[in-house]
């Protein structure tokens, strides 16, 4: 019988080879090293940013960065520490305002697109439609900025002028929409960011809608519900926190966007502009604008202060968004 020749006549030793399984342990150690590098890189990032920001935070009162809306590097003097010329509140304001605007504009559209793809589109075009929307995420930031300047801003001008003419004259609310509108603005930055985060929010919403149980949808339809009623009964209630989480994650992405924003926001650094039609800066845009030309005392160090706060802000927003999204998926699962 052929099989007999295969069977081992002498049992091989079961004993552990001398030195153990060296290759196995080495491989595991290598992968552990890779994981350690990932962990270390985040910690190192925080530490090095603090280290670079430290001279400026020692020279000026660390809190004073957060109490002024005026960024005037030319007024910095090496010896004196009387007044901190590096106020960063207007940048935090710019970052929060533009990313909030982006979220408000993008979320309804993203929900609509995701509902269309998961609930209305014929099955064969669902995947192509998803790919096309995902393509919006593949377009580089610098291209969005360039397109924003030449295509979007001219198109926004009548809209901005209209807002300034109408809402701009309403008492109280007018402050947020007062003109004049030159194109480069928080508004333009918000719209560009909205386009950039639209595919991100859509993708998460699509996943959230897709896990709505189909038997509940069938049950609603069998009761005589129209499609809208079915969505309201079986899909949207379960998706609420998923949508919230998606929105936060989209906003988190908008907070860090740099180049596109820099190209359309106008880059004014001297004060908070209350009107969304006015010009300003975000934390990311001021860093990229001034970093390689920072030649005033404590100028570069202060840009690292901005980077540090930007890191903190993006961490908080992303972890919060992640937590909300993962709680939803646990509920569903």
């Amino acid at each position: 019988m052929a099989a007999t020749t295969l069977s081992a006549d002498v049992p091989p030793s079961l004993t552990r080879p001398r030195g153990g399984r060296r290759a196995d342990r080495a491989f595991r150690a290598l992968t552990a090293l890779a994981a350690a590098l990932v962990i270390v890189s985040l910690v190192a990032m925080a530490l090095f940013l603090v280290d670079e920001a430290l001279p400026s935070m020692r020279h000026y009162n660390p809190v004073s960065f957060l109490t002024s809306t005026r960024w005037a590097p030319s007024e910095a003097v090496a010896g004196s520490s009387s007044v901190n010329p590096y106020g960063i509140v207007q940048f935090i304001y710019g970052t929060l305002l533009t990313s909030f605007m982006a979220m408000v504009l993008a979320v309804p559209v993203a929900i609509g697109v995701a509902l269309y793809i998961t609930e209305m589109a014929p099955a064969i075009i669902r995947r192509p439609l998803s790919y096309l929307v995902d393509l919006l995420a593949a377009i580089p930031s610098v291209v969005y900025g360039f397109w924003g300047v030449f295509a979007l801003i001219p198109a926004l001008k009548p809209v901005g002028a209209f807002l300034a003419d109408t809402l701009g004259h309403v008492p109280l609310l007018g402050a947020a929409f007062s003109g004049p509108f030159f194109g480069y603005s928080y508004f333009a930055a918000g719209v560009v960011l909205a386009i950039m985060i639209l595919p991100i929010i859509t993708a998460i919403c699509r996943e959230v809608f897709a896990v709505a149980p189909s038997d509940e949808k069938d049950a609603a339809l069998a009761l005589g519900a129209t499609r809208w009623e079915m969505l309201r009964m079986a899909v949207l209630p379960r998706s609420r926190s998923g949508i919230v989480g998606a929105s936060i994650l989209g906003m988190g992405r908008a907070i860090g966007e740099t180049i596109a924003v820099t190209m359309v926001i106008g880059n004014s650094v001297l004060a908070i502009t209350t009107s969304i039609l006015g010009q300003g800066s975000t934390m990311a845009s001021v860093i990229v604008n001034e970093f390689t030309e920072a030649n005033q005392p404590f100028h570069l160090d202060s840009l690292f202060v901005v980077a540090l706060w930007l890191l903190a802000l993006s961490l908080v927003v992303n972890v919060a968004g992640k937590a909300v999204v993962s709680r939803t998926s646990r509920d569903i699962a």
Binding site: P12, L14, R16
Partner: peptide, 17 residues
């Protein structure tokens, strides 16, 4: 006669056998 759970035994060799 040999305990496959003995400390000196290599689990990978056990699975080969």
């Amino acid at each position: 006669g040999q305990d496959i759970y003995d400390r000196s035994v290599d689990p990978v060799a056990v699975r080969r056998a």
